[in-house]
């Protein structure tokens, strides 16, 4: 079993060797977590494992049994109100996305970063967000959005 976005989810034994990313996308059929590189280089597959940002492509299901996994689809449930997570709202306010493909991963990294450090400085944002590649080059808007979310939380 894993706890996936608050729901107890069964993991068949035959799937123990499958990556968490493949499980999320092709078994749980949640498509918001993205495949970018499959080898831990890009951050597109970032999810929260017990609240910590992790690369889903680098985890096997056998390693995450019994743990709590949150994907982009479950992120807004982490807030008190019904609406979007403050990081998602900041992303909209700063019009961050271009193609958008990297953004679920960016948002998951940012949300975990702010949960651990609610008032990050510029250098902490740069370092904290550097594992997430964006080919469209949205970095400076991502930076602004993280800073905004920190302010508005």
């Amino acid at each position: 079993m894993i706890n996936l976005n608050g729901k107890a989810t069964r993991v068949e034994k035959v799937l123990y060797d499958v990556s968490l990313l493949d499980f999320i996308r092709d078994q749980a059929m949640l498509k918001g977590t993205k495949f970018g590189c499959g080898q831990g280089f890009c951050g597109a597959c970032t999810v929260h494992l017990d609240g910590i940002a992790q690369r889903a492509c680098q985890l096997k299901m056998s390693e995450v049994r019994g743990h709590k996994v949150t994907t982009i689809e479950g992120l807004s449930a982490l807030t008190d109100d019904e609406g979007l997570h403050p990081v998602q709202r900041a992303w909209i306010a700063e019009a961050v996305p271009q193609c958008g493909y990297c953004q679920p991963g960016q948002i998951m990294t940012a949300a975990a970063l702010l949960a651990a450090n609610p008032t990050p400085g510029d250098e902490e944002i740069r370092a904290g967000m550097s594992g997430n590649l964006c080919r469209c080059g949205t970095y400076s808007r991502i930076h602004r959005a993280v800073a905004r979310a920190a302010q508005e939380r």
Partner: peptide
């Protein structure tokens, strides 16, 4: 599409 992008709902080819 922006709300769907930040909530992971936009459909790309892989999805």
């Amino acid at each position: 599409d922006i709300e769907n992008i930040v909530t992971g709902k936009v459909v790309y080819s892989r999805d």
